[in-house]
Design a protein around this nucleic acid. Structure first.
Length: 318
DNA sequence: AGCCAGGCCCAAC
DNA sequence: GTTGGGCATGGC
């Protein structure tokens, strides 16, 4: 059932001279759920993308050696024949090489200067130096907007290992089979159509708890407005984007902040969960939403979301 | 067993 | 506009 295969063979791509980049920290700071560490320290995962109206998936295994990473990957595009080229996708005219360079550069947020951000944060809040040091190679991934919407609805009132299990279950049950990759069967994240078509009984197989209704309803909402419209939320201001994302069923303030931070490039947004609440109290002596909000906007400013990731990683690693 | 987890919805103030 | 109970599930 491996339909729509494009470029079946394994490709390799190396990126060198990386700064502020630690693969383990990036993959293990709670922003992504479909990457898993292998015995050799490399990470294997399935990445979703949406391009010119088509859904695509990249199966990848990434190894870091000092300042460079080696990416081994396959690309699969839905509803495409074996011989079709990526530059035939409507509204998209790049060759494979350029596509891959751009894709990974975007995914790992490589254009952003994290050293500058660290200096900015430490300058305003000296206590951040120690916190940043524990996760100095963290970067914010630019992940697929649809996958992140559903993933963070699942994340609410849930543990990270179980969030990952829930998402894998959704993919195995209702995503497309993408083939065998690095010793495991891999599945694509289900599309809005695939999820919106499910009944409560069907989605209950994945044991998502009370969130299953949120996911079905949000899937229908995305289907209603269309992916194109949904993606364009990125063009709105931070505040407007947050309001629009909060319009989805099961998305409250915390989840909405995660979604705009991890998929809509709103690096100013600062998700406040139970861990962050505790950290703000223990480290900075802050209590209550207003107190935290004031401090964050004054001290972390336009990079609050990145500061949040350093904090989250710091307090969770023990 | 009871408590907790990258919270949200909705009814009742 | 704010507050609190209820909510599925599984690991500790």
């Amino acid at each position: 059932m491996r339909n729509g295969v494009l470029m079946k063979q394994l490709y390799e791509y190396r990126i060198e001279n990386l700064a502020d980049f630690n693969l383990k920290q990036i993959m293990d700071c709670g922003q992504c759920f479909r990457w898993n560490e292998e015995c050799d320290g490399s990470y294997t995962g399935v990445v979703t993308f949406f391009l010119g109206g088509k859904w695509g998936y990249i199966l990848a295994n990434i190894t870091q050696e000092d300042k460079s990473i080696l990416i081994k990957y396959e690309i699969i595009i839905d509803e495409f024949g074996e011989d079709e080229k990526i530059d035939k996708i409507e509204g998209f005219s790049l060759d494979k090489k350029t596509f891959c360079e751009r894709f990974w550069e975007e995914y790992f947020d490589l254009k952003r200067d994290y050293s500058e951000i660290k200096n900015f944060l430490i300058d305003k809040t000296p206590k951040m130096e120690e916190i940043i040091k524990s996760g100095e190679g963290i970067r914010i991934l630019n992940q697929n907007k649809w996958e992140i919407l559903i993933s963070f609805i699942i994340s609410q009132n849930n543990h990270i290992p179980r969030i990952k299990a829930c998402i894998e279950s959704l993919c195995e049950e209702y995503g497309k089979y993408l083939g065998d990759f690095f010793g495991k069967k891999r599945y694509g994240f289900p599309t809005p159509q695939e999820l919106a078509a499910l009944t409560r009984d069907e989605i209950n197989v994945c044991k998502l708890g009370y969130r299953d209704e949120y996911i079905l309803e949000s899937s229908r909402q995305v289907l209603d407005i269309g992916m194109k419209q949904y993606i364009e939320i990125e063009k709105f201001s931070d505040e407007e984007a947050l309001v629009k994302i909060r319009g989805f069923r099961g998305v409250g303030p915390k989840v909405a902040n995660c979604i705009v931070l991890f998929a809509f490039k709103k690096v100013k947004s600062f998700p406040v969960d139970v861990h962050i609440k505790r950290a703000m109290k223990n480290i900075f002596g802050l209590e209550g939403a207003e107190e935290i909000e004031k401090f964050v906007s004054k001290r972390f400013g336009k990079y609050a979301g990145i500061a949040q990731q350093y904090l989250f990683y710091h307090i969770r690693k023990k």
